Amino acid sequence: MGELLEKVEKYWDKRADGYCQVNLSELNSFKREAWINLINQYAPKIRKRKLKVLDIGTGPGFFAIIMASCGYEVTAVDYTETMLQRAKNNAGVYRDNITFKRMDAHRLEFQDNTFDLIITRNLTWNLERPQEAYREWHRVLTEGGKLLNFDANWYLHVHDAEKRKEYEQDRRNTLEKNFEDHYTSTNTEAMEAIARNLPLSREHRPAWDAKELLKIGFKKIMIDTEIGAKVWDEEELVNYGSTPMFMVAGEK
Results as ranks from 00 to 15, higher is better:
Thr80Asp: 10
Lys177Thr: 05
Thr174Ala: 08
Val93Glu: 13
Asp170Val: 11
Asp104Leu: 07
Asp55Gly: 09
Tyr79Arg: 13
Lys88Phe: 14
Lys215Pro: 00
Pro60Val: 07
Ala195Trp: 02
Thr124Gln: 09
Ser69Pro: 15
Gly61Val: 01
Leu38Ala: 08
Gly71Asp: 13
Ala133Leu: 07
Ala207Phe: 10
Met67Ser: 08
Asp160Leu: 02
His204Met: 06
Asn40Ala: 04
Ile56Gln: 05
Ala195Leu: 02
Arg139Asn: 11
Leu237Ile: 03
Tyr183Ser: 05
Val231His: 04
His138Asn: 13
Val74Pro: 12
Lys50Asp: 07
Ile98Asn: 13
Met247Gly: 00
Phe150Val: 02
Arg139Phe: 09
Tyr134Asn: 02
Ala229Met: 05
Asn126Arg: 06
Ile216Gly: 07
Pro60Thr: 04
Asn122Gly: 01
Met191His: 10
Tyr42Pro: 08
Ala16Ser: 14
Thr99Phe: 09
Ile36Met: 13
Ile65Arg: 08
Ala105Asp: 11
Arg205His: 06
Tyr42Thr: 03
Asp233Tyr: 10
Met191Asp: 03
Val140Ser: 00
Tyr155Lys: 00
Tyr94Phe: 13
Glu109Ala: 04
Ile46Ser: 06
Ser29Trp: 00
Glu226Asp: 07
Glu128Cys: 15
Ile46Phe: 11
Lys52Leu: 08
Glu176Ala: 10
Asn37Tyr: 13
Asn149Arg: 02
Glu9Thr: 01
Glu176Trp: 03
Lys50Pro: 01
Tyr167Pro: 04
Lys211His: 12
Ala91Asp: 06
Asp160Gln: 02
Val8Cys: 00
Phe110Ile: 02
Leu54Met: 02
Lys50Trp: 06
Tyr94Gln: 13
Met67Ala: 11
Leu117Ser: 04
Ala43Ile: 08
Gln41Thr: 10
Tyr11Met: 05
His106Tyr: 02
Glu33Arg: 14
Asn173His: 15
Ala152Arg: 06
Ile216Val: 12
Arg196Cys: 11
Lys31Pro: 06
Asp224Cys: 14
Thr186Arg: 15
Gly144Glu: 01
Ala76Thr: 09
Ala249Pro: 03
Lys211Tyr: 10
Tyr183Pro: 05
Pro130Cys: 07
Leu198His: 02
Arg202Gly: 01
Asn97Glu: 15
Thr80Gly: 08
Ala152Phe: 00
Asp151Ser: 07
Asn126Cys: 11
Glu162Pro: 08
Thr184Asn: 01
Asn90Thr: 12
Ala193Ile: 08
Ala16His: 14
Ser201Ile: 00
Ala64Tyr: 03
Ile194Met: 15
Thr75Gly: 00
Thr142Asp: 07
Asn187Arg: 05
Ile39Phe: 10
Leu127Gln: 10
